[in-house]
Amino acid sequence: MAISNATLTGLTRTQLLCMHNMMLLMRRFEEKSAEEYTRGKIGGFMHLYIGQEAVGVGSITALRTSDKILCSYREHGLALAKGMDPRAIMAELFGKATGCSKGKGGSMHMWSNEAGVLGGNAIVAAQLPIAVGVAFSAQYLRQDTVVACFFGDGAVDEGAFHEALNLASLWKLPVVFICENNQYSMGMAVEKAWAVENLLSRAAAYNMPGEIVDGMDAIAVYAATKHAVEHARRGEGPTLLEVKTYRFRGHSMADPAYYRTREEEQCWRSTRDPIGIFEKMLLEEGLATQAEFDENDAKATQVAEDAAQFADNSPDPSLEELYTDVMVDDSSALTYRYERK
């Protein structure tokens, strides 16, 4: 089959294959994480991104490396898409010294200054006010950085969401609010939590553009985010995107998902898998071949395997690390005027 040189929404074949590769990496990385969790190599809470890959890949493809993202605790996939080293992410899951947060953060707390990943936050909606501040600093310093702030549908129920949208709009800050509506805030169905049907009215309430996006279509997410990012970069202020998606796994590793039916899950998985949708589109457009998909899958599997092996072989943090990084200046609760033995 002949490969077309055409583009899709301005994305070249190389970019599209790169997006495909990243979606596969997210999927295989999370599957590997789940496996290592089951083996007891990873502890604590862990929230998988499986099913939501198109949101992360589509939106982050629309960003520059110098742009920043802030996330919730479901951020492994976003961190990968923004360019963080899979080894450093997996090692963080393992709690190892080589982890991106030196093993002090864990699944919910990934960070990279270089990649512009400013944290996974484990307090629902806390990243929204902080994202407003990062965007304010960009405006203040006359940088053309844009901040993308990712959060779930549950965060919309927090007061911080409303305060953040109001201030971002009032000050015309370069931030794109991306609600990954995966239908459930833990076990609470979104229609039981929201007094509105969708977020268009919320966007309107804070006088900013809003858009509802098919979160299983990476191209649609890319197009919507690109539009919002350009709007923000032009100094015209924030946008609220409601990206409708579905997490294929439970809320966390501990969640058997009794609040939804197996039929519902099966329906999403079989008809709305974002990777399947993306591949189908590329094939139909003649932009890629099954062989290329298989190659990407093999590469992704290899990267995930390598990351896990790296993490497993990495040392635990030294116990001296317990007391480092509390304060930037290494001060502690007590001021000592004299040397202690």
């Binding site: 400013l118 806390a126 929204l128 006010p129 902080i130 994202a131 407003v132 501040g133 990062v134 965007a135 304010f136 600093s137 960009a138 203040y140 310093l141 007061g159 911080a160 305060e163 953040a164 109001n166 201030l167 009032l170």
Partner: peptide
């Protein structure tokens, strides 16, 4: 106005904004 900013009565977001501004290289 750039450096002396009135804010809405919204302690959560203004505190978060100050934190984010500090992360972004300012000294709020």
């Amino acid at each position: 106005e750039k450096r002396v900013r009135d804010t809405p009565l919204a302690e959560e977001v203004i505190t978060g904004t100050a934190i984010g501004a500090a992360l972004g290289g300012l000294r709020p």
